[in-house]
Design a protein around this nucleic acid. Structure first.
Length: 82
DNA sequence: CCTGAGCGG
């Protein structure tokens, strides 16, 4: 499942995201969205987890919690297809 | 270097 993570600390990288979600389940991909012009973090990212139950568990456990000193927002990403 | 809602390629 795709997971949307917002309000990240600007100094937080993809590795921080991956290790945070890896505590609750298997993480296949963790990505921080960076600005294409400046290369700086946009402050949000995406995490892909193959296990849906672990994904929902990670969302419930990490949503509105502190990561790298900043409270993050974690929720399921918008579906590209149905 | 900096900023702070929101869904990337």
């Amino acid at each position: 499942m795709n997971i949307f993570v917002a309000r990240l600390n600007f100094k937080t990288g993809h590795d921080e995201l991956e290790r945070a979600f890896a505590q609750f389940g298997e993480v296949t991909s963790a990505k921080i969205i960076t600005d294409r012009e400046t290369g700086r973090s946009k402050g949000f990212g995406f995490v892909e987890m193959p296990n849906v139950e672990e994904g929902n568990n990670a969302i419930a456990a990490l949503n509105e919690t502190e990561l790298d000193g900043r409270t993050i927002i974690v929720k399921p990403a918008n579906p590209k297809t149905e």
